Amino acid sequence: MTSFYDFRLPALDGGEIDISRWKGRPVLIVNTASECGFTKQYEGLQKLWLETGHATLDGLIILGVPSNDFGKQEPGTSEQIRQFCQLRYGVSFPMAARSVVRGTEAIPLFRWLAKEGGFLSLPRWNFYKYLIDRQGKLHSWFTPLTDPQAPRLLKAIHQVNEQPR
């Protein structure tokens, strides 16, 4: 895979996520977990989705990628994860099926993110965030300590949203 738009992921609902359909749109990828101290960030991610992505045809896409890699904090089935996200946080943004996001078994998307972002960008816990610009390049990444409503993340999102299409 050489381009962000070449990836496909199994969807949480059993279908498939074809990232190429988002070509030209900024994307925020977040590795998530339901039993983590940062799980409440789903609320901020959903708010961000409704404010900058969902309501527009060319706005930000948020892609959640559940992972059980850190502290075994995502032990549920796809149906359990889906229900938890929808019932607890009203999540309506796209969610991939539970995936490995670190190490040699990481899914191709996260191997690509590691290559593009370098060693320091490797997820070391749940809720790492990766912002892809309109050209499909990694613009920036954020640790779990960066809340979805943090000014520095919102500034980066604004920068990629203002890029030419």
Score class of each variant (00 low, 15 high):
residue 109 L to C: 07
residue 90 G to N: 04
residue 22 W to F: 10
residue 50 L to C: 14
residue 128 Y to Q: 01
residue 37 G to H: 03
residue 83 Q to W: 02
residue 45 L to F: 06
residue 133 D to H: 02
residue 93 F to N: 09
residue 120 L to C: 01
residue 157 I to E: 02
residue 50 L to Q: 15
residue 13 D to E: 12
residue 112 W to F: 13
residue 136 G to L: 04
residue 67 S to M: 04
residue 122 L to A: 13
residue 16 E to S: 06
residue 25 R to E: 10
residue 27 V to N: 03
residue 12 L to D: 09
residue 127 F to R: 10
residue 138 L to N: 10
residue 160 V to Q: 05
residue 5 Y to W: 12
residue 39 T to I: 11
residue 149 Q to R: 13
residue 97 A to K: 12
residue 112 W to M: 09
residue 127 F to Q: 05
residue 16 E to V: 07
residue 91 V to E: 00
residue 26 P to V: 01
residue 148 P to S: 06
residue 22 W to Y: 08
residue 146 T to N: 00
residue 53 G to S: 02
residue 25 R to P: 12
residue 109 L to K: 04
residue 103 G to W: 06
residue 96 A to M: 06
residue 45 L to Y: 02
residue 38 F to Q: 06
residue 51 E to Y: 04
residue 124 R to A: 11
residue 5 Y to H: 11
residue 93 F to A: 11
residue 35 E to F: 06
residue 48 L to Y: 03
residue 69 D to G: 10
residue 61 I to A: 09
residue 16 E to A: 03
residue 29 I to G: 03
residue 155 K to C: 08
residue 48 L to T: 07
residue 122 L to F: 10
residue 19 I to D: 11
residue 151 P to E: 12
residue 162 E to S: 15
residue 26 P to E: 07
residue 8 R to V: 08
residue 115 K to Q: 15
residue 81 I to N: 03
residue 93 F to L: 05
residue 83 Q to V: 13
residue 7 F to G: 08
residue 87 L to C: 14
residue 160 V to I: 07
residue 41 Q to T: 11
residue 150 A to N: 00
residue 105 E to G: 00
residue 130 Y to W: 03
residue 84 F to W: 00
residue 23 K to C: 13
residue 80 Q to S: 15
residue 33 A to M: 01
residue 128 Y to F: 08
residue 78 S to H: 07
residue 77 T to D: 05
residue 63 L to E: 01
residue 74 E to A: 02
residue 83 Q to K: 14
residue 70 F to E: 07
residue 38 F to T: 11
residue 27 V to K: 00
residue 71 G to S: 09
residue 34 S to P: 05
residue 159 Q to N: 14
residue 136 G to E: 08
residue 150 A to H: 05
residue 4 F to N: 09
residue 63 L to Y: 00
residue 77 T to G: 08
residue 123 P to R: 04
residue 77 T to R: 02
residue 139 H to Q: 14
residue 92 S to C: 11
residue 18 D to N: 13
residue 83 Q to C: 14
residue 138 L to Q: 05
residue 41 Q to D: 04
residue 7 F to L: 09
residue 142 F to P: 03
residue 121 S to I: 07
residue 28 L to V: 13
residue 106 A to N: 06
residue 34 S to H: 01
residue 101 V to A: 13
residue 120 L to M: 14
residue 86 Q to L: 10
residue 2 T to N: 15
residue 120 L to S: 09
residue 123 P to W: 00
residue 124 R to S: 14
residue 131 L to G: 02
residue 82 R to P: 12
residue 37 G to L: 04
residue 9 L to V: 00
residue 48 L to P: 03
residue 59 G to H: 03
residue 47 K to V: 12
residue 133 D to Y: 01
residue 155 K to H: 14
residue 102 R to T: 12
residue 1 M to F: 12
residue 56 T to A: 14
residue 46 Q to I: 10
residue 87 L to D: 13
residue 143 T to S: 12
residue 139 H to A: 15
residue 61 I to L: 06
residue 2 T to Y: 12
residue 121 S to D: 13
residue 54 H to Q: 15
residue 142 F to R: 00
residue 36 C to Y: 04
residue 112 W to Q: 02
residue 77 T to L: 01
